[in-house]
Design a protein around this nucleic acid. Structure first.
Lengths: 342, 342
DNA sequence: AGGCGTTCTGTAAACGTTTACAACGGCGCC
DNA sequence: GGCGCCGTTGTAAACGTTTACAGAACGCCT
């Protein structure tokens, strides 16, 4: 008990060679008698295979990595909830990396692929630098990127059409008669920030609304800063009648601010978020939000990666998830819960 | 580029032995000239050390495990947010295990300690079986359990005084004049379920209130089932004026049901949760909740484990986090946001 | 100049597996 | 009875590190 048992220990106890032990443990054909001896010795000694030795020899770690900006964001959480069971079922462990959206950190994770402690990686970079692309090209293990990536990048890619998503929301608000539609965005140097900013301007144009830069306020992607950004916007444009937020967390901050300012939602200001997180139905009023299919994207990423692990040489693939508008009471007063007709 | 470079490759390129390469890479004293040659060869070849080989030799994986029932629960999330950066700073990666509160699964994770792919484990078992205790005793690597564990178990333990927490909540509701205080609990065969059930009865007794078993309803620890359980309770006891929920998720479900039933919160029914998750301030009305110090518990667990990793022989320790009642509008109408005096 | 100590380097073994290859025994067949 | 074949087993090498140990180079002192 004091020494950790290895296949050598088992071999001695069972009176066979280590090769036989290994064969039995891996289910290769063996004489019943040998198998019996080995199995009983293994059980008796409480043998557990050493994963480092196994990895060293087999060149597989049975681990996959998931790198995101911040595990506190419910979007990533929704993805993990899909990804985790898929890999667990396939015999992989999940190694988590929370990078704080720090590029250097993300590059470190990519370098980690070279250490071979993970067999593959799902990554969600908020910013995409040349260094990322270089590392993608040099990577020794398959990578799936969630979020848009150049066409020729040698990685699988799961994306969502956030352009279409923003359009859905803007059209919805416009359809409700709102004309002063503010936009609270995250940093413009992030992939989603940039995409949503462009999409917002486009959507307004398509509806024949003027694009007023003063209607946009940039902050970050969290609730507290979302509240501050919304407050600034509200100060500057007191007569806005709708607020589109680049994600749900920002929208929650905006709801806090509007409530404190005594604006009724949705009567005075309609509010819409993006991501359609679980939390949207918890907020008051329940939040209209553009679903970007977080769960689907997580599942798609996991499946792409699993497939690529088995089928190493296949060409990179792109999966696109369609956005979908989920209307709730924060834009549509007829949906306020507890006030429905019976 | 086609062959993964190893220290052998580097040694050839630099014209030194593999021992020298290893020494340079590990910062052991070397002649400046050698160091220069090795470093430049390593950089040129894009060398990355192989973690399996390193682990095999050093007997450390630089990974730690975190096992919880379900990563979707915001309590565990709050813990991870504390734990992740602590271990990252100390050079460890975090391996996630979501066990669905399945005992067999948890035992598997414990067995994993023997595979040595993690150097230590933080675990939150919802149920604690004899098998758990056996595995704790046999474990080759340090374990920290969050949640109560027998005094003599050979593991570090971070607990919270949920008894005191329940008492705080019941006293608060009683102080508001509520006398028909319902209790929506999770399964009684779980550690927290059992503790909270006993504490609820005790707290009532201490206040001289009768204990009416009909005021208790058992479900699970999630929102949907929380809603169903609350609905059943409400059907059975239409005149209850307060509802204590064994965690916040249950409370959110209860809020849904009460709203649909046309009961005003807090005027008709005061609602309190436990865990004081982030989401409590998102709900409507904002949820009064007993903070069980999730973040503190996470941090404490991480620190205990790190300490134990450095100081292997020290005796098991117990850290207790005190609960704290956070009063919000779901029990106290004077706190409804947007209605404060200026 | 010889001996000694210091500093650095190389050789080789070890960590615990998997697996190519050879050896072995038993069996059927001619 | 010898041959070949098959199924099973053992030996040994390999995976990429770290590290104990011995040896080499060098400067310094007497």
């Amino acid at each position: 008990m004091t020494e950790e048992p290895t296949i050598t220990t088992i071999a001695q106890h069972a009176g066979v060679s280590i090769a036989s032990v290994s064969r039995v443990l891996n289910g290769l054909p063996t004489k019943a008698e040998t198998e019996r001896k080995v199995m009983s010795a293994a059980r008796e000694l409480g043998y557990v295979p050493n994963s480092a030795a196994r990895s060293l020899k087999s060149r597989r770690s049975n681990q996959i990595g998931f790198a995101m900006a911040d595990i506190g964001n419910p979007v990533y959480l929704a993805m993990i909830r899909e990804i985790q069971p898929i890999f667990k079922a396939a015999g992989y462990r999940l190694v988590l990396h929370s990078t704080d959206a720090d590029t250097a950190d993300e590059i470190d994770v990519l370098r980690g692929l070279g250490e071979r402690y993970i067999d593959g990686l799902i990554m969600i970079p908020l910013r995409l630098t040349g260094e990322h692309l270089t590392m993608f090209a040099a990577a020794r293990a398959p990578i799936v990127v969630i979020g848009s990536v150049p066409e020729d990048a040698p990685v699988d890619n799961v994306r969502t059409d956030s352009r279409a998503g923003v359009r859905l929301a803007v059209e919805h608000l416009h359809g409700l008669g709102r004309r002063r539609i503010g936009f609270v965005n995250g940093p413009l140097d992030t992939v989603p920030g940039a995409a949503r900013s462009a999409a917002y301007a486009e959507a307004l144009a398509a509806l024949g609304l003027p694009y007023d830069p003063g209607l946009t306020q940039v902050g970050d992607f969290y609730r507290a800063e979302g509240a501050r950004a919304a407050a600034r916007l509200l100060d500057r444009v007191p007569d806005l009648d709708a607020l589109l937020c680049a994600n749900d967390l920002i929208a929650f901050g905006a709801l806090d601010v509007l409530r404190r300012a005594g604006r009724r939602v949705p009567q005075d200001v309609a509010v819409a978020g993006m991501d359609d997180t679980d939390l949207a139905t918890l907020a008051w009023p329940p939040l209209t939000s553009v679903s970007l299919g977080s769960a689907e994207r997580g599942r798609a990423a996991a499946e792409l990666l699993l497939d690529k692990l088995e089928n190493t040489r296949r060409a990179p693939r792109v999966v696109t998830v369609e956005p979908r508008l989920v209307v709730r009471a924060s834009t549509d007063p007829s949906r306020i819960p507890g006030e429905e007709a019976p």
